[in-house]
Design a protein around this nucleic acid. Sequence first.
DNA 1: TAAGTCACG
DNA 2: ACGTACGTGACTTAT
Length: 673
Amino acid sequence: MPELPSLETIRLGQPNDADLLAFYEKYGFKGLVRSRGAGGSDANTGSDKAAKPAFVPQDDLFAEPEPVVTVTGDKHYETILTWDQFDAWLPKLEAAECVAIDTETTSLDAMRADLVGISWSVKPGEAAYLPLRHDGPDAPVLLPMDEVLAKLKPWLENPLKLKVGQHIKYDRHVFANVGIEVKGYAHDTMLQSYVLEVHKPHSLTSLALRHVGRTGITYEDLCGKGAHQISFAQVDVEKASEYSCEDSDQCLDVHGVLWPRIQADAKLQAIYDIEIATSEALFRIERNGVLIDGPTLAAQSQALGQRILQLETEAYEIAGQPFNLSSPKQLGEIFFDKLGLPVIKKTATGARSTDEEVLEKLAEDYPLPARILEHRSLSKLKGTYTDKLALMAHPRTGRVHTHYAQAVAVTGRLSSNDPNLQNIPVRTPEGRKVREAFVAPAGCVIASADYSQIELRIMAHLSDDAALLKAFHEGLDVHKATAAEVFGATPDTVSSEQRRYAKTINFGLIYGMSAFGLAKALGIDNTAAKNYITRYFERFAGVKRYMDETREQAKAKGYVETVFGRRLMLPEINSPNGPRRAGAERAAINAPMQGTAADLIKLSMVAVQKALDEQGKATKVIMQVHDELVFEVPESEVEWVRTEVPRIMAGVANLKVPLLAEVGFGPNWEQAH
DNA sequence: TAAGTCACG
DNA sequence: ACGTACGTGACTTAT
């Protein structure tokens, strides 16, 4: 059977080994991540980007005693090639308290991955590999895949037979691809690490080194690199066996260290329980996928393309020469050297910036920047969305299946990739049209349910601020209420501009604002911004107190936590480096709010899916966008979703303020909003 | 592979 | 004095 081209092959052309390794490391894809040298695997792969200095680990500040156990005893790894061997393992699997499982496949894209082999480990140092589809040059005769999977299936689907894996959502997909719905997945070492040490790497390689002092065969060792790289199915069975057994073995070993640490902390265990349940809910969402209307996007691409060409022509005319409008470097030369426009600001590396803010400013006095602005925004729409989304549809389902990364965002949020469905345009009318292509099949509609002002409600809860609590209890427009306090007006006399200011202030509070940041966002001077902040904190003294206490707690403990006890370590909170310390302080302010919101919607996803299952509904959850859940709803279930989903979402926690979720329906995502 | 830019909550 | 809103992912250009 010919191998399907992977999504990444289509997107990236021929991915080289470096691409793959970077991808695996970044997204924690299981089984294939390998360190690039002894001791080097725990370094932040993103180097120390200035954008997120708050989370660069500093081991000297956060040195914790790590239980490092080196396995010195014999390893017993077995390759299963006969029925006698296989039959001998089944009772051992049945009897084991918890079995580590690992799958080997042909692709890192879970929905498209073909199963090549399975390994398991029932106790550290002991593992077996069941090769299923090796077709390399000297591959031995393997047990027949269909028959052997049929015999394994009852155990895999038995919810009482507990399993542990590294990134189990991936393995769930792989097994689902061969018609097996795994039950009894109780543990995931990647999620254990995410809960215990969110700021550190979570690949199995990193965990094995960090927690049990073990290293193993690298993916490069096995498959080579670059153009010579081979598929896992081509790998020599004995080598593949050792590699895979090592993974299962290490996974069980790491589980033995991390799980007791989670059990020892009731709050972390509660967070871990949420993560395990969320992993399964995400598997369902990913598997459901979303239906994309290709012709609609193609028409949009066509229209965008024409306008982009027109803008290019106009730009060349004004500049007096053709140039690449997409090149910030060439644009800088045209702007600042040839046309003599003023330099507004520099980039992080000292180059003359041509970002949106600069172009907006320059557009007041010159004709070219407006063309560039429009060109940028339309190119973004075309290049990232209208040209790409339909290409991402799965060949068999015809739908787009994103991947939700559950162990990437340090605040506890999810992220979405390949494609990212969490940044589909919404803020401009032209951009919103992309959402018209997110459609429901015949007989269904799209529903969108989102939390209202979730982070401000959490701020009210955390700060216990009387005025903010009152505003939410009375169901007021919180931005208007904020404006009334800050501007000394009554809510009905608040102007739209005052409300806009208050809204920006509220956003600023959630982000740990400085006067400088607020001034920039509002386009006012620093002193004025400072005055607004002072006025705000006079009126909302509880918020002021909360902000101060959060900073103090962060400095004293080295971490902050969400309402539910999810922790974020802040290694730089006491750094002598002022800007880095300030960055950590802003993260300390933001993380409890963003993180609690993440906890709440995870609870919602799990609760909504449970209700759908228990009540036998056909409604599918198809996307999560931080404070929003999107559904594909049969017309007969619209009323159920209208009443039950917001009720469930509002009921997942009892905070000091009511939670509010609102739902809308439409033939597509745009109209459901 | 990095930098710049911009899409989202 | 210092750089400044928090958290992400994808695309393009240029090295």
